[in-house]
């Protein structure tokens, strides 16, 4: 029996785990965006703070996920055992590319455009929403794309904290020394990453063409 037969015979669980997996990624990306975008915007003109925050996000990136789970278990509200801890950890990992691309994307907008917008009497809010964000959008989206693809890969580790997802097959397969089971998790996860990357890439191109 090869892994493909295994996949076919367990397709309902593979499907359910894939949905669970995407749910974890979507929830964590949502949180990372809700935090990362405003924070990145707030940091654009504060270079000192930006260095600190990006440095911190960089350090978070290097914490192994099992260690991060360990830290998070005792934290009230967001921690514990299950999906919430996994989502928090995934969101923390996604924060760096989102923050960095928000900062560089907005900082990369032509200063003459900003000067003209201010000089014409746009408020800071109008400047942000009508000029800076639309012009930074391709760079922003590139960051979101990278963060999402990374998240799909990293989300397999969510199974270590009882949050489900395709990682369940991987952990199960490792525990049972069964490569078919490992592949039943790893291959759909890789496919998901490729599909999401391609579709976000297409979206990014369509945005750039406009």
């Amino acid at each position: 029996m090869n892994w493909f037969d295994f996949l076919l015979r367990n397709r309902s669980e593979v499907l359910a785990r894939s949905v669970e997996h995407l749910g974890l990624v979507a929830a964590s990306m949502g949180i990372a965006l809700l935090i990362g975008l405003p924070l990145g915007i707030a940091l654009v003109r504060r270079e000192q703070a930006q260095r600190w925050v990006l440095g911190a996000a960089n350090i978070v990136q290097t914490i192994p996920s099992l260690a991060l789970f360990g830290f998070l278990i005792p934290v009230p509200w967001i921690g514990g055992v299950g999906a919430s801890t996994a989502i928090v950890a995934l969101a923390l990992y996604a924060l760096l590319p989102i923050l960095r691309n928000t900062c560089t994307g907005i900082a990369g907008v032509d200063p003459a455009v900003i000067e003209a917008a201010r000089g014409m009497g746009m408020t800071e809010r109008q400047l942000l929403w009508q000029v800076q964000l639309p012009l930074a959008a391709p760079v922003l989206l590139a960051g979101i794309r990278v963060a999402t693809v990374i998240s799909i890969g990293v989300a397999t580790i969510a199974a270590a904290i009882g949050a489900g997802g395709l990682g369940v097959f991987i952990f199960r397969g490792v525990a049972m020394v069964n490569n078919q089971v490992i592949l039943a998790g790893a291959i759909p996860a890789a496919l998901l990453a490729v599909v999401v990357d391609l579709s976000l890439g297409a979206f990014q191109r369509s945005l750039a063409q406009r």
Binding site: F69, I73, P74, V81, I161
Partner: peptide, 18 residues
């Protein structure tokens, strides 16, 4: 049962998660 990585089990027990 919550299904966790072996290394996290004791931590979850100590923190009264399980």
């Amino acid at each position: 049962p919550k299904i966790l990585d072996l290394g996290l089990l004791y931590r979850a027990l100590a923190d009264r998660q399980v």
